[in-house]
Design a protein around this nucleic acid. Structure first.
Lengths: 368, 368
DNA sequence: TTGAAAGCGCTAACAA
DNA sequence: TTGTTAGCGCTTTCAA
């Protein structure tokens, strides 16, 4: 509206016939304690409002050597888990009086480095490194710049890490699907599908194995197929398993909702009765998965606590680098199963599923 | 590692026994054309690397009066549509050589104002205002600061707007569900559920009405219930409709995936055969909705084009403010229906659904 | 109660 | 080929 150039304190000072430092004090709220006259302040505020003044935070940041920004990198934004993390991060940042900047890196190490450097160049005051493929490399960069940072979701060794308890989450899911399958068959066999063999997937595989072992079931390496975080790959993996066995396995552990999407695409091609004979679990949560026509047991990550603990660790100074904090997941068991217990799954669940009360969420144990 | 204080060009200049401006030229890549010696440059780069120098973009931005930032506000991040927009925006921003800053406002007008002001204070070079509740108020703020901006998803009158073609998207979905329902019943009756009566929902209602009218069906105001963007409300709305009618309506148009979640929760309490007698459509898309055990027709918003066109409009100068650009949606029709045509839905779809080829996506018409 | 002045780190003439 | 210098807009002593 006014000029295209931005209004500065000098413009206002000139118009008010007063010095720039006085204007500055009024504009940043420090004028009371600088004992600037009530009317002077009012006048300046009026001019500022009429000219549409906005403070230049780059200048202020330069002067202060602090930006008021807090950064977060995530592999991608268009993902239920990471976007929830981002949302929780934003709210936390604001509560801390900081301005959140969230950027995605597409799981590309180069991109991660460039993004972290860029964020540091913008003088962020702290950094959350989420799902980084090279957390320690990034820690290096941050350390040189003296920037506080926390690894989230995937751990590193050079900074504190806050991650989900993948092991126990996977174990719990496995235990439930084992019970489901065991009620149908003497020695059921299970498959693990999806994910890349990073830290999280490896821990989940460990949990899966332990869940089977605890039930006295054998664990076959050939049944563990981390075919990637990709729906198409998961789909063809399950299709192949089905082709090989001539039917679905007795139980299936799907590692991530994105892989689950592919799995469901294949399952839809099968008669519903066959699908319901397979006990299915999924690491991570999607509300629509609860609403499918067959029951799925899920381990839901606790996004809010991941962020809360990260922010807490940012505050404290004296954390031994490399500390890993595990946040328990919530076990989500479909109503159909809850209602059918005890003796879970002793019958095929009814085609008319349970009333629409929310699914049961169990498991709160803190393993830190 | 080194000191906690950040390394500046002066530190490097001192260590190299050379002037700061030379260091600056080397650090920002302009040294070739400033004809700085190859070995000088090499030496400086070596020192910079060893000391972990990172350029201070606040200082550079202050000097240039430009920040290299581009901002976007969204109602929330943890939403499939908005997070996809954010992801597409990021990629576009980088392609433009700008650094993306995405912030959520939780559909709160105050928050929107504060956030836009904050972004302007950080000297963003352009702004995408997504789903703003008060686009024109925000335009005002931007205009005063001389900041280019575009309304996305919800239109305003003081800046160009790029939004989905809600009217035609809704009309197309309605037409398909009308055909489905008409094959079962002479004069089917339809309900519209979910959303708040903002511009988008109103246009979708118009499209819904037109879809019915085109088939010679009556349009009853009492059948249109924009019960909010909330799963629980949508659930109880549909439950009430069901209770009142003693059955599901012949067709149901659900306005948003979040409302759809609530609707499915209720539908799960019904026998599958009853659900399959209801022709169901949904504005907007979720991959898991495609995978439910009953067919759903969806209008999928074209996130990429929304962003592409927004960025294009940011470039050009001479756009009459208030121009609204409509981006067509893609009609997503489940395979079960595609395979059953012609005479869509003439029989109840088979319980074993179609093979896992991706659903058909039709509708590309550009209505600008 | 207010003003003058130095400087945050970087850039870009202009000098040398 | 390199150095000097004057700011970008703001904050903050110190002086008036």
């Amino acid at each position: 509206m006014t000029s295209s150039k931005k209004v500065t304190i000098y413009d206002i000072a000139k118009e008010a016939g007063i010095s720039a430092s006085t204007v500055a004090a009024v504009m940043n709220g420090s004028w009371r304690k600088r004992r600037i006259g009530e009317e002077t302040a009012k006048a300046i505020q009026a001019i500022a409002a009429s000219r549409g003044y906005t403070i230049n935070l780059q200048a202020r940041g330069l002067r202060h050597s602090r930006s008021g920004l807090i950064g977060m990198i995530v592999p991608m934004l268009d993902n239920r888990f990471f976007s929830s993390l981002a949302q929780a991060f934003e709210e936390k940042a604001r509560a801390l009086g900081l301005y959140p900047v969230v950027v995605s890196t597409l799981r590309d190490p180069q991109n991660e480095h460039a993004t972290v450097s860029a964020l540091i160049s913008h003088n962020v005051e702290a950094l959350l490194l989420t799902g980084a493929t090279d957390p320690d490399g990034l820690s290096e960069i941050c350390a040189r710049a003296g920037v506080r940072h926390i690894n989230v979701d995937l751990p590193g060794t050079k900074a504190p890490s806050v991650i989900s308890d993948n092991y126990n989450g996977a174990k719990e899911v496995t235990e439930v699907i084992v019970r489901m399958a065991s009620s149908r068959k003497e020695r059921p066999s299970f498959y693990f599908v999806g994910g890349v063999p990073d830290h999280n997937t490896l821990r989940r595989i460990d949990g899966f194995r332990e869940g089977l072992r605890g039930a006295g079931l054998p664990v076959l390496d050939s049944h563990i197929q981390p075919s990637g975080y990709d729906a198409d790959l998961a789909e063809s993996t399950v299709r192949e398993i089905h082709a090989r066995l001539g039917s679905l396995p007795d139980g299936l552990f799907v590692n991530s909702t994105i892989a689950f999407e592919g799995v469901v695409r294949f399952l839809k091609t099968l008669p519903i009765d066959e699908v319901r004979k397979c006990a299915i679990g999924c690491f991570d949560y999607d509300p629509f998965i609860e609403l499918l026509h067959f029951p799925v047991v899920m381990a839901r990550q606790n996004v809010k606590r991941l962020i809360d603990e990260s922010s807490r660790l940012l505050e404290v100074d004296n954390d031994p680098a490399g500390q890993v904090m595990l946040i328990p997941t919530d076990l989500v068991v479909p109503n159909a199963l809850v209602l059918a217990s005890p003796g879970m799954g002793s019958d095929d669940p009814p085609l008319i599923l349970a009333p629409s009360k929310p699914s049961k969420r169990i498991g709160r144990r803190k393993i830190a």
